[in-house]
Design a protein around this nucleic acid. Structure first.
Lengths: 91, 91
DNA sequence: CATGACCGTGATACTAATACCGGTATAAGT
DNA sequence: ACTTATACCGGTATTAGTATCACGGTCATG
């Protein structure tokens, strides 16, 4: 039928994820990292600020490579918030 | 301006990626794995068959968890084709 | 002052996620 | 033999969301 709208917890997860990427970026500029990953700076900004909470897999994979971080670790760190686990169970 | 259409190499990469997921699934049914990952079976089918070549990151993360595979390994295996590296450089 | 970095926004076109359909193939049961 | 159940396939339709470009604005620095 129809694609369902993102749940609030999905948006929050996206915001947390974005924050992790922001931290991983450190003092490097957004434009530089975006270019290294082969995506636009606006895209990176939207992801970091949580305005694109569910980015594409390969976009994130490219960013992880540019940032020298592991995808598995990113996911684990993102899931770490204990408050997040409750809505996931009921969803 | 506008989001550009997927390049052929992106579609091919998606197909390769889907094949990797198909292998990782082994003899388990599509419906079972999809349910374990919290996505629809149609979604998993589209990803495996390459009809959704750029799935969302968290969709893949959930699938990787259900399949007990590492995201980093998936990405590495997907990037392994030497033919794929040339278009990426020109893109 | 100029410059670089970042921010949010608007607009666009494309894509994914979901559900359903009819079809095929296989295996088991009657 | 036929029927039923299961799994998968490509196709269609709908909708929400993303990736991208471009813009004007703020802020910090030299």
């Amino acid at each position: 039928m129809v694609r369902t709208a993102l749940a609030p917890w999905e948006r929050e997860r996206g915001e947390r994820f974005g924050s992790l990427l922001r931290q991983a970026r450190g003092s490097r500029s957004m434009a530089e990292v975006a270019a290294a990953a082969g995506v636009s700076a606006e895209t990176l900004r939207k992801i970091e600020t949580g305005r694109a909470p569910t980015p594409a897999f390969f976009t994130i994979a490219a960013l992880a490579t540019a940032l020298h971080v592991s995808l598995d670790e990113l996911v684990a760190a993102c899931a770490h918030n204990p408050d997040w686990q409750e809505p996931a169970l009921s969803a």
